[in-house]
């Protein structure tokens, strides 16, 4: 039994279309789990079900073996950080942070101490007496985090907390969030649509699509070994081609070339996929070698550190990136080799 369990959660707003379809998710204590997916995939809905802001139509939600499905949001004791930060504009930073503690009727000196401690952890000691509108985006973000953490929540929920920050600050804040999260050892759920952000911060990632979890794994596993075509597409695989499994655990392309993959052979899966940067381009056209395919360059795009070539081949148009040490021209015939350990079957 995991610390947090979502069992067969179904959410639908009008009883016709399901926002979440029998969703199952287990989170271990102290883990930071990300929900990753495009907008409308149900990741925010999942988070709101966990928070208690949405009641699921079916299913159960447990934390620490307690069934919380019917427990209202204000009794769940979870800390939540919203995309808009949602600071109380009429209260100072200290008062914002103390809000949850005051509701718990804690003694004034205890509140004072806890607020000081969390402001120190989040690097806000100097700003306690200011109002939210006097703070920068990054500072507001810290206040929202401090306010959620000070109540010592059983769970920390973060709803796209970095999407309103500029790129530099986003990088700094995600390191900051990870540091605070592991320092306090608090179980966290992080919603994002940014895969880089999500991979760098998470212990585990749930990739969601249309209300279901397509894959729930460590970031490395998802990056290197996506299980479905959707996951592969979402994390940067751009080449997809049809493959037919052969009897000796290999694959045949539509033009009859044999492809091998070191990744697990699973029945029913017959699409090969590879990242553009993992395809190797060579000028010489060799025929009939395993894991190669020949074609003609149709489009060349300069990407900065490399060129991207759109190559028309018998198995479809493939994208391949190559550093600019050798530059090919549009119309050149090239051979693309697809390394067996980089070829994924989904």
């Amino acid at each position: 039994m995991s610390y947090v369990e979502l069992k067969d959660i179904r959410v639908s707003y009008d009883n016709n279309t399901d926002i979440l379809k029998d969703l199952n998710l287990s989170i271990e204590k102290g883990e930071l789990v990300s929900l990753l997916g495009p907008s409308g995939c149900g990741k925010t809905t999942t988070l709101r079900v966990i928070a208690g802001l949405i009641a699921p139509n079916d299913g159960e939600f447990l934390v620490d073996n307690q069934n919380l499905t019917k427990v209202p949001v204000h009794k769940r004791e979870f800390g939540m950080v919203f995309q808009s930060y949602a600071l109380f504009p009429h209260l100072t930073i200290k008062e914002n942070v103390a809000f949850g503690l005051k509701l718990r009727k804690e003694k004034r000196n205890i509140i004072e101490k806890k607020v000081q401690d969390i402001l120190a952890i989040t690097g806000l000691e100097e700003l306690g007496d200011r109002y939210p509108k006097q703070l920068s985006g990054g500072q507001r973000q810290r206040v929202a985090l401090a306010r959620a953490l000070v109540i010592e929540p059983k769970l920390l929920l973060l709803d796209e907390p970095l999407s309103n920050l500029d790129a530099k600050l986003r990088l700094a804040m995600r390191i900051e969030i990870k540091r605070i999260q592991s320092q306090l050892g608090i179980t966290s759920v992080f919603v994002t649509h940014d895969q880089e952000e999500c991979f760098s911060i998470s212990d585990k990632v749930a990739v969601m699509n249309k209300g279901v979890i397509e894959q729930f794994d460590t970031p490395e596993e998802i990056y290197k070994n996506p299980k479905t075509e959707f996951v592969a597409r979402f994390i940067g695989f751009e080449n997809f081609f049809e493959l037919t499994p052969t009897e000796d655990w290999k694959y045949k392309t539509v033009d009859g070339t044999i492809f091998q993959s070191t990744h697990k052979w699973e029945p029913g899966k017959r699409t090969g996929t590879i990242r553009p940067e993992d395809i190797e381009i060579a000028a010489i056209t060799q025929q009939n070698t395993n894991n190669t395919v020949s074609g003609t360059i149709k489009v060349r795009t300069f990407l900065g550190k490399s060129y991207q070539y759109e190559v028309e081949t018998p198995i479809g148009t493939l994208l391949a990136n190559k550093a600019d040490d050798v530059v090919y021209q549009v119309g050149d015939n090239v051979t693309l080799s697809i390394p067996a350990h980089k070829l994924i079957i989904v």
Partner: peptide
């Protein structure tokens, strides 16, 4: 911003 109400619920207010 409706989320300031939601956040106060998560902090324990009815």
């Amino acid at each position: 911003d409706f989320s300031i109400e939601e956040v106060s619920w998560t902090l324990g207010s009815t």
